[in-house]
């Protein structure tokens, strides 16, 4: 493992994993307590439309995808703000439509034969240095915005109706949260890919929620857990020569199932 660290690609991979974990801990905690997991899935898959668009128009991938995903996030935010009228179904439609648009645009892009697998499972072993810097900048942005709005996010997440009476700008925060989520999703896709982005947003955060006494505490713990899973998954992928993104999620999911099972067992054995 130590000799592996001398490779540039491995250093970039480690940096990308740590930076993505920070974003996952912050945004994942908000996703879990606000029950936005399905919406996050919709945004992550709609993001693929942005990837297709960037290749079709010959534009830079990250800015185009971020822009497209922001648009998709705000649209889904508008449709789900009141949580009525089958809004979850509409999210499902946008989920599939964004993905299909991406594939069709890639098919129609001349001269590009893009490896679909790298977007599904990520390409953490091939993260360029400038992407690492971009992710660091995004982390700073996320930290600043969440810290600045922490009280309001706490109020919104815990009790939306109360937040309204307390004068918290609920609608504006809802859109802000989904915009941040959209940006984060594009960033995390770089590391673990499209399919697995949900796992890194949900698993560390749910594990962090057990025993956490504050939302901020949950965010810190979720970031640490995500880092541990990412670093251990990278190590496993190097040793076993398997796909890094899938290894990270397999480790996280295994931990999640063990913790859940222990919880059920304890409840079954020690409660009358």
């Amino acid at each position: 493992m130590i000799d592996a660290l001398s490779y540039d690609f491995m250093q970039h991979a480690l940096a990308a994993a740590v930076l993505a974990s920070l974003a996952c801990g912050l945004m994942g905690s908000l996703v879990v307590v606000n029950r936005l997991v399905f919406l996050a899935g919709g945004i992550a898959h709609a993001a693929y439309g942005g990837v297709g668009l960037s290749f079709f128009l010959g534009m830079p991938v990250i800015p185009t995808t971020v822009g497209f995903t922001l648009g998709a996030s705000l649209l889904m935010g508008k449709l789900t703000l009141r949580r009525t009228d089958r809004s979850d179904t509409v999210v499902g439609v946008l989920w599939a439509a964004g993905m299909a648009l991406g594939i069709l645009l890639l098919d129609l892009s001349p001269g590009y034969n893009v490896d679909l697998m790298s977007y599904l499972f990520g390409s953490i072993m091939a993260v360029p240095g400038e992407d690492v810097l971009a992710m660091a900048a995004l982390d700073v942005l996320l930290l600043a915005v969440v810290a600045y709005n922490y009280q309001d996010f706490l109020c919104l997440s815990f009790d939306r109706e109360y937040a309204r009476t307390a004068g918290v700008p609920v609608d504006r925060l809802h859109y802000l949260l989904l915009s941040l989520l959209g940006v984060s999703v594009v960033m995390i896709i770089q590391v673990v890919g499209l399919i697995l982005v949900i796992a890194l947003l949900t698993i560390p955060s749910r594990l962090a929620e057990y025993g956490a006494m504050s939302l901020a505490g949950m965010m810190v713990r979720a970031s640490v857990y995500a880092m541990l899973f990412s670093l251990a998954g990278l190590w496993a992928s190097y040793v076993l020569d398997v796909t890094a993104g899938a290894a990270i999620i397999a480790l996280a999911a295994l931990t999640f199932f063990i913790v859940q099972t222990l919880g059920w067992l304890r409840a079954a054995l020690f409660r009358p």
């Binding site: 307590v33 009790d159 939302l215």
Partner: peptide, 9 residues
């Protein structure tokens, strides 16, 4: 109407 799992004291 309250989420009792929420990490809050």
């Amino acid at each position: 109407a309250v989420d009792w799992d929420f990490p809050i004291t």
